[in-house]
């Protein structure tokens, strides 16, 4: 009996490494395992990563009780602002991050975290869509590919399972502002999305790349880097820069409130500010780093890829806007209505 108890205790006890642990809440398929292993090798800290596939899912999860179980998360720009107002973030001083100076100047003082008190820049990129050139060869630089598709693409479109991005792109397509309170505009957005849904095959964020590679979808809303990965895996897809506009975003690593391993979290954030490590993420995820000095470490295909080099006549992208509570409820209603 005693043997049974001790064995059970040993099995249940988490291995206690000298330097401790780190619990990371991260986007799917973003950070290469080799980089995480490198961090563990350098610091002795064991890292566990849980993934999510949308900013909103991460927020819901943290609010439902997971706060206090993770040390860091990787929200997008608008989500950092929301998390700040909801009191989910802890703060740090630049002194606690020796490599703080590596942050690229244009990302230092951002509207969603002035002075960078709770977050550091991670990667930034754009969200639009890609089309399989084997299926459709016409002009693709318009959001109509997703919201009012040509015959060849109907029923073969995947849409991101992300409220922020879908509603933003929908608003951009219709030419209405992102946080409008005008009921007619909102109704128009709702109706347009519902009509477009008839032509969609599926909602999926972490599946966005695979459906293009496997052919289950011929077009899909996708992040620029993810599309580059699809191309690398053999899909004949072209990333579009729609003339109406598209979404740009910046992902950031934030220090969560009640982080169980705050020290280790700061070490991890500092690690990610090193140009070599930031470049490793860029090379894997195919986005663009938010720190300086990464050029010598970047892979050639990333530097020259069409997904990271928009054509000269492409419009500027827009960030997703954060609306006040009243307005946000209206947009929540549209999303719920869409997903019903």
């Amino acid at each position: 009996m005693k043997k049974l108890l001790t064995t059970a205790a040993l099995l249940l006890a988490t291995p206690a490494f000298a330097e401790g642990e780190l619990k990371v809440y991260h986007w799917f398929e973003y950070i290469p395992q080799e980089l995480v292993d490198k961090f563990t090798a350098e610091t002795g800290i064991t890292v566990t990563i849980d993934t999510y596939d949308s900013n909103e899912a991460m927020l819901a999860s943290l609010k439902a009780g997971k706060l206090g179980q993770y040390d860091v998360a990787v929200p997008g720009d608008y989500m950092v602002q929301i998390m700040g107002t909801e009191g989910l973030l802890d703060t740090f001083t630049p002194e606690e991050l020796p490599s703080f100076g590596n942050i690229a100047p244009q990302w230092l003082d951002v509207p969603f975290d002035p002075g960078r008190k709770s977050s550091i820049p991670y990667q930034w990129g754009s969200t639009a869509f890609s089309v399989n050139r084997d299926v459709y060869t016409g002009d693709i630089d318009t959001l109509a590919m997703i919201f009012d598709p040509p015959e060849e693409l109907k029923g073969k479109i995947n849409v991101l399972d992300s409220q922020g991005e879908v509603l933003a792109l929908g608003s951009i397509y219709l030419g209405i502002p992102q946080c409008t309170t005008d009921r007619t505009q909102l109704k128009a957005l709702n109706d347009m999305l519902l009509a477009a849904k008839a032509n969609w095959a599926s909602f999926g964020s972490d599946t966005a790349k695979d459906v293009l590679v496997s052919g289950d979808a011929a077009a899909g809303m996708i992040y620029n880097g993810f599309s580059a990965k699809a191309r690398a895996e053999g899909a004949n897809v072209e990333y579009a820069y729609p003339k109406e506009g598209f979404v740009v975003w910046m992902d950031n690593v934030v220090l969560l409130k009640d982080a169980p391993n705050r020290e280790n979290a700061l070490k991890f954030m500092n690690f990610l500010l090193e140009p070599e490590n930031a470049a490793a993420v860029t090379n894997y995820a195919a986005y663009t780093a938010g720190v300086t000095g990464v050029e010598p470490f970047l892979a050639e295909e990333i530097k020259t890829s069409p997904e990271n080099n928009p054509p000269a006549d492409a419009p500027a992208g827009s960030f997703i806007a954060v609306c006040d509570e009243e307005t946000q409820k209206l947009y929540d209603a549209i999303w719920i209505n869409l997903k019903k």
Binding site: E56, A57, L59, A60, K63, S202, K339
Partner: peptide, 23 residues
């Protein structure tokens, strides 16, 4: 099923794990 065949199981799961988050 994809997006077209939303059933009870998917509806429930969406509330807890998906992007809707309404427990």
């Amino acid at each position: 099923g994809g997006a077209k065949t939303f059933m009870i199981g998917s509806l429930i799961e969406e509330q807890f794990k998906g992007s809707l988050g309404n427990w």
